[in-house]
Amino acid sequence: MKLTRTWLALLSCTLFIVAAACNGGDPPPEDTGDTGDTGDEVDEETADKGEIVIGRNNWAENIAVSNMWKVLLEEEGYEVDIQAMDKAPVWVGITRGELDIAPEVWLPHTDEPLMDQYEDNVEMHDIWYENTGLGLVVPEYMDIDSIEDLNDIQDELDGRIVGIDPGASLTQMSEEAVDEYDLELDLVTSSDPAMIAEMSQAYNNEEPVVVTLWSPHWVFSEYDLKYLDDPQNVYGDPDDIYYMTRTGFSDDHPEIIEWMNNWEMDDDSLGSLMAEINDNGEQEGATNWIEENRELVDEWLE
């Protein structure tokens, strides 16, 4: 009996020690109704908000603003994927809901055919750049001022106009220009980088060259270039640049729509962004530009 009482006493003591250790020796905390702390709030602010897919074509300003928004949206907690493709597939991807955002739509002229075809299946939003330009461009050193005079220097140009991708609206307009002006030149399609590379080589050698180009574009800050007069107005009047999203995106992400509707750029801001990306690559260039222009981008994200 004495041994049994001793064993029970030891067992009771042991259970008391274990219970005290589990509770830290203190009574359980009082329920205050607080379900989180500062750390949890930070986690919620930086938590992944889902994936956003941006569709962009291979134009310098489109590459620039697509990467700029990728960096900004990732800072806000989104996962962002950029899909590179020609302009027409971008529209198709938006209509099918495979892409969320297309940052560049030229209206009312350049993208009018695509708008007429797809306008019922996209969401069109605000203007972020005003008064574009596009047409046939030559170096300033060339003694020519009008599209009408291109046939006079056909041999000097090797019978070629250097163009961009075949699916671009600018390419279609340039094909119309060839017909409208009875040009004895072939429109050679390639891509924006390939066109710029050929133009740059000719420019550095002070050789004649004619290319399809548009404003805004960083090359106008790097080279002394001029648009050829277009008396037939084949390339139309200046456009404004809008952005569009898939149907339903406004309901899914109203905060992004609010930010992007605040977005405005001019030749200086867009030109500096394109130059930064051209010098340092897409992600690094966009990140550098954002840090240098934090006050501006913060106004968009208010």
Rank of each mutant, 00 (worst) to 15 (best):
E30G: 13
V219H: 06
P254L: 12
I277H: 11
D145M: 10
P208K: 01
N280G: 15
M85R: 11
E206W: 02
P208F: 00
V71R: 09
T6Y: 02
W214Y: 12
L225R: 01
D239I: 07
M142R: 11
D126K: 15
M124F: 07
Q283D: 14
W300H: 05
W59P: 04
P103K: 04
E75D: 02
T171G: 05
E156Q: 13
E184L: 11
L72I: 00
G159R: 07
E140W: 08
N262P: 11
L73N: 02
A286F: 13
L225C: 05
L157C: 06
P113N: 10
E206D: 08
V162M: 13
T35H: 05
N288Y: 06
P27A: 15
K49S: 07
N233D: 11
Y141F: 15
M260D: 12
D252K: 14
V65W: 02
N62L: 13
G77T: 01
Q172G: 04
F220V: 07
G77E: 00
R160D: 10
I144A: 03
N151D: 07
Y129K: 09
S190E: 07
G77C: 01
P166M: 06
V42L: 14
E76V: 01
L8Y: 03
C22F: 02
T6N: 08
W214L: 10
E130T: 14
W91K: 09
P28Y: 05
W289G: 01
D298W: 00
I290M: 00
D239H: 06
D237G: 11
E74R: 04
R246W: 14
P139L: 03
M85S: 10
F220G: 12
V188E: 13
L8P: 00
G135C: 07
P166R: 03
L270A: 12
S174T: 04
K226L: 00
Y118W: 12
I147W: 09
G133R: 05
I144C: 04
L270D: 11
F16P: 00
G24S: 08
V90P: 01
G39M: 13
M265N: 10
T110K: 12
D192W: 11
E222L: 15
T6S: 06
T132E: 07
I290L: 00
W91N: 10
D43A: 06
G133D: 02
E264N: 13
S272L: 05
F16C: 02
A286M: 13
Y78M: 04
G163T: 00
T32P: 03
L301P: 01
N58L: 09
